[in-house]
Amino acid sequence: MNTENNRFSNILQESQSNNWVRAIDSSKIINWIDDLFKILFPEKALETIQIELLLDQSKANFISILSEIVKDKTANQILDDAEAFYAALPDLYTSMQKDAQAILDTDPAADCIQEIINSYPGFFAIEVYRIANVIASLTACLLPRILTEYAHSKTGIDIHPSATIGVPFMIDHGTGIVIGETTIIGKYVSIYQGVTLGALQVEKSMQEKKRHPTVEDHVIIYANATILGGSTIIGNHSIVGGNTFITKSMNPYSFVMQSNKNTVLNQQEIKDINFFSI
Rank of each mutant, 00 (worst) to 15 (best):
A225W: 00
N10Q: 14
E203R: 10
R211T: 08
I221Y: 03
T175F: 07
T148G: 12
A151S: 15
Y93S: 11
A140M: 01
K271G: 15
W32C: 13
D172V: 03
D158W: 10
I220R: 08
G180D: 04
L66R: 02
L66P: 09
Y86S: 09
E83M: 09
I63N: 13
S190I: 04
D56K: 07
G174I: 02
Q101F: 02
E68M: 06
Y93H: 15
I171L: 04
T155R: 03
I273A: 08
N61D: 14
N243R: 06
I270N: 09
S249W: 00
A110Y: 01
R7S: 13
F275P: 14
V70F: 01
S249C: 07
N31K: 10
Y222H: 12
I135D: 05
S277Y: 05
A163V: 06
I239S: 06
I177M: 02
I157H: 05
V202L: 13
I126D: 02
A109F: 01
P121R: 01
V202R: 07
N19V: 07
A163S: 14
D81F: 07
I239M: 12
S205H: 10
M257H: 12
E203H: 07
A140N: 05
N266F: 05
V189I: 13
A109N: 02
V264F: 08
S119A: 03
F245C: 10
R145C: 13
S231T: 14
M206E: 14
E43K: 11
R22K: 11
D81S: 12
L228K: 04
L46E: 12
D56C: 01
T175K: 04
H173V: 13
N31C: 09
S205W: 05
V256Y: 07
F275D: 06
I78G: 09
I234R: 08
A45D: 10
I239Q: 08
K38E: 15
A223S: 15
H173E: 05
S58R: 00
A87V: 02
I113D: 04
E149K: 03
N266T: 08
L92W: 02
D172K: 00
A75T: 15
K71A: 10
E208H: 10
I117Q: 04
K210T: 12
D107L: 00
E83K: 13
S162D: 08
N10L: 14
I24D: 10
S67E: 14
I103Y: 01
S137I: 01
E83A: 15
P213M: 04
A102E: 09
S137D: 11
I179A: 09
L79I: 13
A132V: 05
K28W: 00
Y222P: 08
S205C: 08
N6S: 14
K59P: 07
I278G: 11
K98H: 12
S67A: 13
T247A: 03
A140I: 09
I29E: 08
K59M: 09
